[in-house]
Design a binder for these strands. Structure first.
Length: 445
RNA sequence: UCCACAGUAGCUCAAUGGCAGAGCAAUCGGCUGUUAACCGAUGGGUUCUAGGUUCGAGUCCUAGCUGUGGAGCCA
């Protein structure tokens, strides 16, 4: 009798008879010998058919299998160092084979393809081993982020996706028709998080967010996933500690659970193993000084122009890359100018021109992966800031209310899932970090 | 929105202004240890679109469309 197994567990069944239910990943035709690589979602295993050992009809089927045909194979597992697969080193000697469906000519061949073609066929591309590995790592990162926050006593409280008119800068929001009223897809759950924090102490939300910006870069999506923790009585300094513990926890989980996947995508794991606390911490002031030094040393005029910076300006991506390259682990940059940050950020005492904000820049040029701050908790100051920034006060009434009923110092941050996955997997573009990327010119499939 | 580059067989790409080509995939044949197997054969084209220059345009020019990379944008 053969037992139905997942390919990922194949090592436990050496010299036993198993049943594999999967899809043909690739086939090598050697005449009287067929090497059939079968994937079942959990892994890939090589199945071998010898003409002598199979009945004629079944061998004929085996020798005509097309890529992605669905099959049920029964056979005995043997250890063989020559066998490729995930995990490698095991193969199934086919005793019987059942063809569920012979696949039509499959568009994605084992050869190279262009980005546009692959994205047009994203529904099929997901079956390729690289994409399979990346999305499995994404799932682990997502779960680890939740596990970490849960272990720290944070409660998952979901925030709405359909939100009322925010009033300002609607150009970056996706507008929808809410029964005749204007509504928008959420850009962040943060304001609701602050209300939830007042109810539960320590909370986080984790869901999709939407940005209608005309951004067309390797770091931007129109729809992306973000986890946002928010806690009462959390200082900026304690938040940095929390963030670095979180990141190193997640990196540890990925290294522990995905050696096969990391090997498949050829990630340099030494770069991940180097992610140890404490992370580097520098102030915005120091960051600007360091960037000016880099600027002075840069010869290439085009590059030099991109690195130009004056105190008070926000960093562009070339600046973030230059700063991150100075360290082999993630870098916190704190106390940004108040003018370039959001209205709700708490000013630094005695230095109102900067605020208690912090961004975390990933190594290897992956840019900002988290951003957060202490929030203004004094209602008068918050109202002043809303007036200064010319925001519609009515839209923020409930938010101001939070400061009228037992206001406390608090802080929070957001971590962008796709940028985190891109960094940990060493990918050049975020489009492969999400099953179906929504980009400026991509809403299919 | 701006800058740069690209668009040729199902896919990845070649082709000095002069016969439209290769590899992979498909189909057929060969091979008992392949790792993107290999070897032989066969079929496969609106060269993104519209106009223009030229004896002749895949190639040059103009406009547009699509994509890629980057910048800006990213409270």
């Amino acid at each position: 009798m053969s037992v139905y197994v997942n390919i990922s567990d194949i090592a436990q069944y050496v010299d036993q008879s198993v049943e594999i239910r999967g899809w043909v990943y690739n086939r090598t035709d050697k005449g009287k010998l067929q090497f059939i690589q079968v994937r079942d979602g959990s892994g890939i295993v090589q199945c071998v058919a010898f003409k002598k050992e199979l009945d004629e009809v079944q061998f004929d089927i085996a020798s005509k299998l097309t890529q992605e045909s669905s099959v049920v194979i029964r056979g005995s597992v043997r250890a063989d160092s020559r066998a490729p697969g995930v995990p490698s080193g095991f193969e199934v000697g086919i005793q019987s084979l059942e063809l569920l469906q012979k696949a039509e000519e499959y568009p994605i061949t084992p050869k190279e393809h262009g980005t546009e073609f692959l994205m047009d066929n994203r529904h099929l591309w997901l079956r390729s081993s690289r994409q399979w590995a990346i999305l499995r790592i994404r799932a682990t990162i997502e779960r680890s982020l939740r596990d970490f926050m849960d272990s720290q006593g944070y409660l998952l409280v979901d925030t709405p996706i359909i939100t009322p008119a925010a009033g300002e800068n609607t150009t970056t929001l996706f507008e929808i028709d809410f029964h005749g009223e204007r509504a928008f897809l959420a850009q962040t759950g943060q304001l609701y998080n602050e209300a939830n924090m007042m109810a539960f102490g320590k909370v986080y939300c984790f869901g999709p967010t939407f940005r209608a910006e005309k951004s067309k870069t390797r770091r931007h999506l129109q729809e992306f996933w973000m986890m946002e923790p928010e806690a009462a009585h959390l200082s900026l300094e304690d938040m940095m500690t929390l963030e670095e513990q979180m990141i190193s926890f997640v990196v540890g989980r990925v290294l522990e659970n995905h050696p096969h996947e990391l090997a498949l995508i050829e990630r340099d794991v030494a770069r991940l193993e180097a992610i140890k606390t404490p992370f580097a911490r520098i102030s915005y002031d120091e960051a600007v000084e360091r960037l000016k030094q880099v600027y002075d040393k840069t010869e290439d005029p085009e590059q030099k122009d991109l690195l130009k910076i004056e105190w008070g300006e926000d960093f562009g991506s070339p600046h973030e890359t230059a700063l991150a390259e100075m360290f082999d682990r993630p870098l916190f940059v704190y106390h940004y100018p108040t003018a370039v940050k959001a209205f709700y950020m708490q000013p630094v005492e005695g230095r109102p021109e900067v605020c208690r904000s912090v961004d975390l820049l990933a190594p290897e040029g992956y840019g900002e992966i988290t951003g957060g701050s202490e929030r203004i908790y004094d209602p008068t100051l918050l109202e002043e800031r809303i007036k200064t920034m010319a925001l519609p006060r009515e839209a923020y009434q409930w938010y101001i209310d939070l400061r009228r009923f037992g206001s406390v110092p608090h802080a929070g941050f957001g971590i962008g899932l796709e940028r985190t996955v891109a960094w940990m997997c060493g990918l050049p573009h975020v489009r492969e970090t999400i099953p179906y990327a929504r980009m400026l010119s991509r809403n299919y499939p």
